[in-house]
Design a protein around this nucleic acid. Structure first.
Lengths: 182, 182
DNA sequence: AGGCTAGGTCATCGATCGTTGACACGGAAG
DNA sequence: CTTCCGTGTCAACGATCGATGACCTAGCCT
């Protein structure tokens, strides 16, 4: 065996990546520390050593960044294109958000983490393009995005699983504009 | 103690009601057969006797009816009122659907049950008011409803938790009409 | 009255999981 | 070469849970 070098920092990153995949695929409860450790080829006790507990591992693994750009000055017609583009980047290229969503369904700490993302990232970013009633508008946008993600990636409703990005943007665009601007 | 009469059928109904509450509040994994049995004041072994297994209990408890009316002939302007009305009836007066949603996030059998509800109830009901692309339109409506429920009852985003039914209908109405008719 | 059936209990098994503490190893510093 | 600390392993504990099978009991039928 290649006897992977003993690099603690790298091992922690591998553990976090494996944890994100497991939490995304199986949810919080069904994800076991032993399985995450096994994916990396390491003992479960090491995970506890590095992250303190299963909840600590989840908290670190679920720390995410939506990467929302500054929306000031973006034309109304381009808003949905930008938002839907971010949507697919966040949901299809990285298992973190799916992990958070699955966990939030049953875990209160995960739900709180979600509220934090909403309060610190979605709310402020959208407040730049909509003056009054910004929190309500942002929450409706969040509900739209969460519903689409839930139906497409978790429930896997066939019509949404098969939908292309362009078509999704064509459908969601007017809805998002309605919530943000009407 | 009053020594509750020995009525098997009634006990099963009490167990199903308790199971729906537990599954809705705690999700599938965190709900224990012992807790459900305890809520009814009965031994856990009896639950297995009646429902075979935890999964059997869930399947019976998650058997639900949206009660969607026949929508043929409903005027376009009244569509959202009817749909949003059913939404609150289903989500706030009965824990069944919330239980199913929470469970569907991590359990595949629950997700399959959700797809069944969509295919047998939502799809056909909405097909009555929209001719072409009916499955796609119905799926978008389902995503809208699921997102709103997820954000309001599971994530508890404050702006949506505080929203009145009338205001919800005012926001969701145009979106639902867009998905169904545009 | 007596027995039979359905309703319900009890003790327990086997498996899994998070977590812990003691121990082993490997490599850079002195 | 030895020391030492960070890296990783190992065995095990304590708790929980789903499920099983033997057993008890209340109440109706004859």
């Amino acid at each position: 065996m290649p006897a992977r070098p003993r690099d603690g920092a790298a091992t922690q990153q591998h553990l976090l990546a494996a944890a994100r995949r497991r939490f995304a695929a199986d949810g919080y409860d069904r994800t076991t520390i032993r399985a995450v450790a096994g994916d990396v080829g390491v003992d479960a006790a090491l995970v506890i050593r590095y992250f303190g507990s299963k909840e600590g591992l989840f908290t670190r693994a679920a720390d995410l960044d939506l990467g929302l750009p500054d929306l000031t000055g973006v034309r109304a017609g381009d808003l949905s294109k930008v938002l839907v583009g971010r949507f697919f980047a966040v949901w299809e290229d990285d298992p973190t958000f799916l992990a958070l969503l699955r966990a939030a369904a049953t875990s209160d700490v995960a739900a709180e983490a979600m509220r934090g993302v909403f309060a610190r990232q979605v709310g402020p970013a959208l407040a730049a393009v909509t003056d009054d009633r910004a929190p309500e508008r942002a929450a409706l946008v969040a509900a739209t995005v969460l519903g689409f993600a839930m139906a497409r990636y978790v429930l896997r409703l066939p019509p949404l699983v098969d939908m292309t990005r362009d078509r999704a943007e064509a459908w969601l665009g007017p809805t998002l504009r309605h919530y943000l601007l009407d």
